[in-house]
Design a protein around this nucleic acid. Structure first.
Lengths: 187, 187
DNA sequence: GTTCCCATGTAACCCGTTACATGATTTT
DNA sequence: AAAATCATGTAACGGGTTACATGGGAAC
């Protein structure tokens, strides 16, 4: 029994979009693809992705086709249906409202740093900078890799990666700014 | 009965830190202060903040003092205990690991934009730019406001706001970059 | 012959959210 | 007299997580 709902979480559409983009993939494939692609700005766990696939199939937005290769468990591959595609386009067109989230464990600690010694604040910044550097290098490598691919999807992917790269770069600069500022005595 | 737990969510420490930073505040006060301060990088709802205050009191990390003003409901004000302060310092010192999260509804849609017309992608970017501009202006105003205050807490707050400002600026530049790039034909 | 990869799932938990309730006091 | 502010809470839900289970096939 399918209960009609007013809205679905963004993740539902994320998985729908992925099935649409990479049709004929299994859940296992999609997990791997998601991890390499949109997980950078929309993380999703394996369990949840499987749950969303079932929901999408129940809604009739994707078809689940059984592939019998004699192995266990049975492999299933997915395709978007016309109604699923319509829903996807509608979702893409409608504005995004307030669904973006940002939580920073670093900034949270930094904000309460009055409690701790200047050296500790400095080490907090060092850790953060290390994390950002790793992020920057990862994104830079991804941008570079996708720049050499000609598929239209690679273009979008490259720009998405560039978003991460630019963000990491700006925050690294901020870390420098913050460190020099904190070294100066209070006026 | 207090059950001992291995770990607590970051939000627990966020509230602990806030009580420590603004001692003698009521839950109502703390909600307002949180919304104006660390909610930018660690959002928290009123219900959750109250729940965490109760947890902190049960753990003995804060004291809850009843203020009887004859009104209803009774007002309670909070102070960190020595053990609570020790826990806070320990938390601040320990590295942050993988607790930061980032989810972007815009990037998610952008990533699946192959389905839609170029004009729609462009309008997606326009909406995003508007959101970023608002963010940038908010952070810029906050940075400016805090620059004129001399309290040590204002300095940290200003730097935290600057983090948001730099991020928004970088992403606005990215939006320009992306738009010009997408206007060029595929090679 | 053990370890990695394919492939799908169950169970349990809990953080965080939204909506709502209540009532006094202060402001308009 | 109405609206906003002060002040604390209950109820219900669900999205997302981690840990675990299962078992065949491929690779080393």
């Amino acid at each position: 029994m399918i209960t009609t709902r007013a809205t679905f979480p963004e993740t539902t559409y994320a998985v729908l979009g992925l099935v649409d983009k990479v049709p004929g993939s299994s859940g296992y494939d999609l997990v791997a693809i998601a991890d390499r692609s949109f997980a950078h700005f929309w993380p999703i766990s394996q369990t949840l992705l499987y749950r969303e696939l079932n929901r999408l199939a129940e809604l009739g937005w994707v078809t689940a086709q059984r592939i019998d290769e004699g192995r266990s468990p049975t492999k299933w591959i997915y395709h978007t249906t016309p109604s699923g595609q319509a829903v996807l386009v509608e979702w893409l067109t409608k504005p995004a409202e307030r669904i973006s989230t940002f939580r920073s464990g670093f900034l949270l600690r930094f904000f309460f740093a009055h409690r701790i010694l200047p050296e500790t604040v400095s080490s907090l910044l060092t850790d953060y900078r290390a994390e950002l550097t790793a992020q920057r290098d990862d994104f830079a490598a991804l941008v570079d890799k996708l720049a050499h691919q000609s598929a239209p999807a690679a273009r979008i992917g490259r720009l998405a990666a560039l978003h991460g790269l630019r963000t990491a770069e700006a925050r690294l600069q901020w870390a420098d700014e913050a460190e020099t500022e904190l070294q100066q005595p209070t006026p």
